[in-house]
């Protein structure tokens, strides 16, 4: 028996720290089936009671939202008739219908999304004695600026900034062309806020940042099963989440989510969560690393190491020459950790 332990001890010097660790633990075996040997006396357990503090882990998550996706959403939602003024008697003596003529195109710069919205405008003008109708084509330009509220609500503000008549509406009355462009300009001014509001509502529906963050927060505050076989449970233990300002680079809206946490992997019984369920308020940070570095503390109770070890080597007989040992039981305890670490 002593020879075996000496052999193992000799090997220790050649092994990595991890192998060394487990080999070390093996020396505490209580081996009952070693005939003709004295019972092995266990060394006195020694523990370093001052735990090494678990450093805060940082999960830095770049978020990349393709403008093309937003463009597809907007185009799928804004179709056909976009705006209608059915009332002659609202001060302008016109009825107006505004249709999307071609797909809306998106681009962006810094913290603004810009749109080009090609429209067809149909105007019916109340000329007292008769009504005259005309249609024209216009390209609107709009921009959306965005900011995030404390509760993670994405607030957008879309304004029509500019428009260019591709074809001004011209009415034909008694064989004469009467341009209605200037009157239609009035209507456009009236419909500005309507179209902007439509885009803002769509953005809020499809890019519900608050819901995304809430869903992610809910996922990471739960106890996650990592391995059923080893009864391994992951607790991320997040305590802070921040986000960099959203900026448009190239064809994407980009930002960084950063999560501070002290994750733990527990082996054995399912642990309780730390009870933090409320999403921390939005906090803006500038510039984050793209890389995620986390330190995961694994808690492996001796009851589990015993159970796992017995599952692996329990009842097995190991021979060396004429001697043999049968593993009937295993107990783990710690000893001289500081020496071991050297």
């Amino acid at each position: 028996m002593k020879e075996q332990i000496t052999t193992i001890a000799t090997k220790i010097n050649k092994m990595t720290r991890l192998n060394l660790f487990f080999t070390f633990l093996l020396t505490v075996f209580i081996i009952m089936g070693c005939s003709g040997q004295k019972e092995l006396v266990s060394p006195t357990p020694q523990y370093n009671t001052a735990l090494i503090p678990l450093p805060v882990s940082k999960l830095n998550i770049p978020v990349n939202l393709k403008l093309a996706v937003l463009e597809t959403i907007i185009n799928s939602q804004l179709t056909g008739l976009l705006y209608e003024d059915k009332d002659f008697n609202d001060g302008d003596r016109m009825k107006v219908k505004v249709y999307k003529r071609n797909p809306i195109r998106l681009s962006g710069k810094e913290n603004e999304i810009r749109y080009k919205i090609p429209l067809t405008i149909q105007v019916i003008y109340d000329a007292m004695v008769t009504n005259v109708s005309a249609s024209g084509e216009i390209e609107l330009e709009a921009k959306t600026s965005f900011k995030i509220a404390k509760d993670w609500t994405l607030k957008t503000q879309t304004d029509l900034t500019h428009y260019v008549w591709i074809k001004k509406p011209v009415a034909q009355v008694a064989g004469m062309n009467i341009p209605l462009g200037s009157l239609a300009d009035v209507i456009l001014n009236n419909s500005k806020s309507y179209l902007g509001k439509q885009i803002d509502e769509m953005t809020a529906t499809y890019f519900d940042l608050k819901a995304i963050v809430a869903s992610a927060w809910s996922s990471i505050t739960r106890v996650l099963s990592v391995s059923e076989e080893y009864k391994a449970w992951l607790l991320v233990n997040p305590n802070k989440v921040t986000m960099s300002p959203m900026v448009i680079q190239g064809d994407s809206i980009q930002t960084y989510l950063s999560l501070s946490a002290k994750p733990q992997l527990n082996i054995g019984e399912k642990p309780m969560t730390n009870g933090v369920t409320k999403i921390p308020d939005y906090a803006q940070v500038l510039g984050e690393s793209q890389r995620t570095i986390l330190v995961l503390r694994t808690k492996l109770p001796f009851s589990e190491t015993k159970s796992l070890t017995l599952k692996q080597v329990g009842g097995q007989t190991f021979s060396s020459g004429k001697k043999s040992v049968t593993v009937e039981d295993v107990n783990y305890f710690g000893i001289s950790w500081l020496d071991f670490k050297k």
Binding site: R17, F21, Y47, P62, L65, L294, V295, P301
Partner: peptide, 24 residues
Amino acid sequence: DNIQITSDGILIDMGIGGNLGIFT
């Protein structure tokens, strides 16, 4: 990164590095 032995078990600190990303 670290291994500590306590009276009721073993604490192992694993360092994990990588990249995460959220995309549309």
